[in-house]
């Protein structure tokens, strides 16, 4: 045990020091993240196989998506990734209030993402650009354009659920940060939330061009 870890109340008895504890948590988090990647990987396969079968559908239907909304959401999500990275950095430097503010900013940006998503979804629901048998829009040429919207709603829907879940626990971590639960000596939950959030950002980085730009 390192001398400096002797009186760290956060050190659990089965770890020899804080570094080991933190690295174990991080490995566990990365293993969780790869299960998330494999979950989305199957859906990226869904996209790939059906696009390969129906290139015309994807080409015609992707024009129905709003590139401005998608671009705005990409920018918002990148900014939220920056703010949560800065929240972790602030805690490393023991600037707790600033860290809490960065976490709140992350939640706010995620909320902006969801609001834009809400407007996109409600517009599509209104037009009938829906998956499978619920599709009743007539403005897209080609056979079975609803396949594209099945892909679109599955991928963005699951991603949106991840954003909502992230908002929930990042808000909870922000409250805990303001209550001085975290410091430079212990901020592992915030760091793990950061890893999760960056993964959600990374998945959107691929979803945005695949759906909005080159569909």
């Amino acid at each position: 045990m390192k001398p400096s870890d002797h009186d760290n109340e956060h050190l659990l008895h089965h770890f020899s020091d804080m570094d080991q504890q933190r690295e174990s948590a991080k490995l566990g988090m990365w293993i969780f993240l790869i299960t998330e990647l494999l979950l989305f990987g199957g859906l990226f396969g869904f996209y790939t196989f059906y696009r390969a079968w129906n290139p015309d559908i994807f080409h015609n239907a992707h024009a129905a998506l709003d590139v401005r909304a998608g671009t705005a959401n990409t920018i918002v999500l990148i900014l939220s990734s920056v703010t949560i990275a800065l929240a972790v950095r602030s805690l490393q430097l023991d600037r707790r209030r600033r860290a809490g503010k960065f976490l709140l900013a992350t939640v706010a940006l995620a909320a902006v993402f969801m609001v834009i998503k809400y407007f996109e979804y409600s517009h599509k629901i209104h037009l009938g650009q829906l998956p499978g048998k619920y599709y009743h829009y007539t403005g897209i040429e080609g056979t079975n354009p609803h396949i594209f919207f099945s892909v679109y709603f599955t991928l963005t829907g699951l991603h949106g659920l991840h954003v909502l879940a992230g908002m929930g626990f990042i808000a909870w971590l922000a409250i805990r940060t303001f209550r001085n639960h975290f410091s430079a000596a212990y901020f592992t939950p915030v760091e793990m939330a950061g890893l999760y959030w960056h993964l959600v950002d990374m998945i959107w980085i691929y979803l945005f061009p695949l759906l909005y730009l080159v569909g």
């Binding site: 490995l27 990365w30 293993i31 993240l33 790869i34 990647l37 494999l38 990987g41 990226f44 396969g45």
Partner: peptide, 9 residues
């Protein structure tokens, strides 16, 4: 760990 997941996908 990360690369193994990407390779699997």
């Amino acid at each position: 760990v990360f690369a193994s997941a990407l390779g699997t996908i």
